[in-house]
Write a protein that binds this DNA or RNA. Structure first.
Lengths: 341, 341
DNA sequence: ATCAGTTATGGGATCGTTCCCATAGTGGGA
DNA sequence: TCCCACTATGGGAACGATCCCATAACTGAT
């Protein structure tokens, strides 16, 4: 195979440390794992030897003997969407604090990739997994379930896969937005939902529709897109706003979609919130840094990640055997992108 | 330790497959690795057995025998900053396509964390590392160098650590912004740079100062912050804009800082770009989705990640032995946040 | 008939670690 | 004095994979 200078990266093993410290590998192991009897003298020699060559025990060999790998996987649709970037960040940081190493797996909503990632994670003998897949299929994840690998679902329950879930009530969040707009006098309300197959987005749409229905209303249009980015929201809104009669308000099922929609309005010379109210969902940092500042439903993104890590940690420690559904609070944050009609 | 129901997650081993397929583990290994002689009959039986229990070879055991781990590490300051989120995403995706599993390590600019992560990566016997540390210290990374672990620096060279670097000319980018503002007639130009110790940010400041100096100018103020987020930019700009005389233009060393500054201006009733021009750096997606749309220096974030992966792949394959410095192109993107004075 | 090369299969050493077990010295209680 | 508990240390078998080597059947050339 590949020629070239070979990197002789061997980083010493326990035997070498034993030689350096003039003792046996058993004693070295006892020092490293801090169990069993070791004299102060040997301990010191071993610690010196370890430091002298910057030795790090081979993690693979350890798990081979049956120790937990202290590796975990996080499966989510993407990393370059602010919401998921923040989520991944909080998860990774929380695991680090617990001494776990995290595999962040960006599945791009593709079943093939999910399957490939699950295989890789199994090969690494991960101790647990957090899944934030937004699609409905559970097939790619069943191998994890079949091996009883502790698993926490984020963003939406995954019945049949795991009984532990950390999420928000997306349906309720949808109602908050619709009620807010109704209270402001809006009757012609459109919805932009993207990506189309995302369960949380569907729930938000359903919630909004339910609240509208309570007032004998229904959305003048529900526009679906396929991507989760600003451009998608903009394109969908542009189309929407060119129809007549024009809606007086738009609900975006994410801040990204809503901010995209704001720019569609600007392009068309429509004043927000004067002629058109726009509201989003998530409360990403950018939501309060657009003009007009975006009215949105705030979800505690970081807390969701931290709670999920906490739950997974409990499962991995065998402290959690029951089904648990953590539902974190949502809050309507009224800013400047919505106004009375 | 932790009690509770034990997860009996053993996922079969090569011996079990051998039994199921009525052959030896040697033959199973040959099928899995697709080398040596195997009859069609045995191959089929083995493949069936593998599928039947969804077997995945233990990655740790493999590397124990000397195979590459196909694990790589990426060290960067954070994941919840759009720029790094996009960078991490493109790196992770590119590695996945090459069959590598990525450890994304969010170091929070802390030396302790960097050190801890490096230790964990060494324990996992990673094949290579991409480092995007913005700080100047190289100490935490020397253990990687000492083991000859292939390493690519991103965003800035890391002399003494690695000779392979993928970056942009931040100094030049700084000059682009200054020249643009000077051409528009600005003379009172302030700079907001955050986080303070980031090498790329410093280079951008230096570039801007150099271009100003060419016209006998110097920045009316350089404000430094510690965080890389919208709030930091906003706070710095608020302070800056309350002084008299007020600058007529602000250069942010990142889009994040610049967008923050725009909101400081709004808070103070200053019109952008009428009374104040603001320009950023990076061209994150949000830059074209604020109002007014942000003038900025565009860097090819995804390409940087992909190129770094390509270079690391070459190093890991032994195909790259020389020093290589990839400098990717920058481009000034003039939008609506800057105007003639 | 002999030999070499190809195809096919299985045994067993090895990688780095943990942990059980054997060994052995020491000190204190009966 | 004997015995046990405690302290301390080292040897060696596992874990799951790879891969070298031995074995053996078969082909075709000499």
């Amino acid at each position: 195979m590949s020629a070239g200078k070979k990197f002789e990266a061997m980083s010493g093993n326990i035997k070498k440390i034993a030689e350096l410290a003039q003792t046996s590998k058993s004693s070295v192991s006892r020092v490293i794992n801090n169990n069993g009897y070791v004299s102060a003298d040997v301990r010191e020699r071993v610690e010196k030897a370890i430091a002298s060559i910057n030795y790090h025990p081979n993690a693979g060999a350890r798990t081979l003997r049956g120790s937990p790998s202290r590796l975990v996987g996080v499966l989510l649709p993407s990393l370059d969407v602010p919401f998921f970037g923040i989520l991944a960040h909080s998860i990774e940081q929380a695991f680090f604090a617990l001494g776990y190493q995290t595999f962040i797996c960006s599945t791009a909503e593709s079943q093939d990739r999910e399957q490939a990632y699950v295989g890789m994670l199994l090969a690494q003998r991960i101790d647990g997994v957090i899944v934030a897949s937004s699609r409905q299929e559970v097939d790619p994840f069943t191998p994890l379930r079949d091996r009883n690998i502790p698993m926490v679902a984020i963003d939406r329950p995954m019945p049949g896969l795991t009984d532990v879930c950390v999420h928000v009530d997306n349906h309720y969040g949808g109602t908050l937005l619709a009620k807010h707009l109704i209270e402001l006098g809006h009757r012609e309300i459109a919805i932009i939902s993207t990506p189309r197959h995302s369960e949380p987005m569907i729930q938000r749409v359903n919630g909004a529709c339910a609240a509208l229905a309570e007032h004998g209303l229904k959305p003048v249009q529900i526009a679906y897109g396929n991507e989760h980015n600003l451009g998608a929201g903009r394109r969908l809104a542009t189309k929407l706003l060119q129809k007549t009669p024009r809606p007086t308000a738009i609900i975006g099922t994410s801040d990204t979609a809503a901010i995209g929609a704001m720019h569609a309005a600007v392009d068309l010379g429509i004043n927000v919130p004067g002629d058109l109210s726009i509201a989003g969902f998530d409360d990403i940092p950018e939501a309060s840094y657009v003009l007009p500042r975006l009215t949105t439903v705030s979800q505690p993104t970081r807390k969701i990640g931290e709670r999920a890590v906490h739950r997974l940690h409990q499962m991995m420690s065998g402290e959690l055997e029951l089904a648990v559904e953590d539902r974190l609070p949502l809050k309507l944050v009224v800013r400047q992108s919505t106004a009375k009609i």
